[in-house]
Design a protein around this nucleic acid. Structure first.
Lengths: 186, 186
DNA sequence: GGATCTATCTATAAATC
DNA sequence: TGATTTATAGATAGATC
């Protein structure tokens, strides 16, 4: 540009590089501004520098965002854009996680209902029981006692069968199934 | 700029505007490129035009994305950026939802364990029971029968008390608590 | 280190093909 | 309409303070 033609390569001299950077950055921003004014086009420039913590942008941060929004909303510039553009990815991901959360909550409600039911039947929750009609309680307890009886019976039979198959092994004796059955079947 | 000094305003003549746009766009991109090379800075430019469906970008779409990612990851340029930058927002949000999901799953595991326990005691799940030691079953059933007995007893007493307080109301009679107590207390 | 100057290089407006 | 030429405005490298 002046006094000498520049060689297009990294300027190793620190102060010279900084001086050039400042001059050219200013010129560049002016050019963007001019192009935008003369032709009324949407444009932006972002320049990071080792000299400022904030990047230099044109037009304004808001204006840049506006251009970026448009850039990001492009249907598909190419696949690499898609991969890099984490906004879309994050939106999809959040949707999936929320769906999972919804399902988990639904399942929790179901489990909670079951839990309260079973607790009501096994003596941990009196509050629930107090709301239950005593007639229903009677019938429900009957049903479950029958289930317990038949289950214990089948387990016991299974254990006795195994015992006889093992020819006198004393394992089943320790289980005292008779005690249970006796009490339940009276 | 040559032959004449340009007035910095929108060029109304269509062909002149387009010609200027093409020339200046090219020059601008060259400037960005030069700045980037000379000073080794991260920079990008995006120019939309009415003449192309795709925006002109420098360096490449990928390079632009790289700069944009950096731009978007800025701690906080200002509040308007923060508002516009949904990436950070989405990241925070996804973190929160995942935390919720984690808690829900933990709760589900807990409920599932409770459910299996109670099911084992009320006869719906034989599989679980088969893995349970019969001695444990014996003891557990004893415990819960006692609980049921005492619970039904207290409920019955409560009902009888209410009945006597209501002076001969026949509501409690329909509940048949005696039937339950008789069978359980033998 | 930054601001200013100025010689000269570069970008480009207008003309021409 | 686009490519090429050319005259000149604008940008800027290096010097100076």
């Amino acid at each position: 540009m002046a006094r000498k033609k520049v060689k297009l390569a990294y300027i190793t001299d620190d102060s010279a590089r900084k001086a050039t950077f400042k001059k050219r950055k200013k010129g560049l921003m002016k050019k963007v501004s001019e192009l935008s004014t003369l032709c009324d086009v949407n444009a932006c420039a972002i320049i990071y520098s080792p000299y400022d913590s904030q990047p230099e942008v044109w037009p304004s941060p808001q204006g840049v965002q506006s251009v970026l929004a448009r850039f990001n909303s492009m249907p598909s510039m190419d696949q690499s854009k898609k991969m890099f553009n984490q906004d879309t990815y994050l939106r999809e991901r959040i949707g999936k996680v929320q769906e999972q959360l919804k399902n988990q909550k639904k399942e929790n409600r179901k489990k909670e209902i079951e839990r309260v039911m079973f607790q009501s039947l096994t003596g941990k929750s009196l509050q629930g029981l107090m709301h239950m009609d005593l007639k229903d309680l009677d019938r429900t307890i009957d049903q479950h006692l029958e289930q317990i009886q038949s289950r214990v019976k089948s387990i016991t039979e299974e254990a006795l069968k195994n015992q006889s198959q093992e020819q006198g092994a004393s394992v089943a004796a320790d289980h005292k199934p008779d005690h249970v059955i006796k009490r339940l079947t009276i």
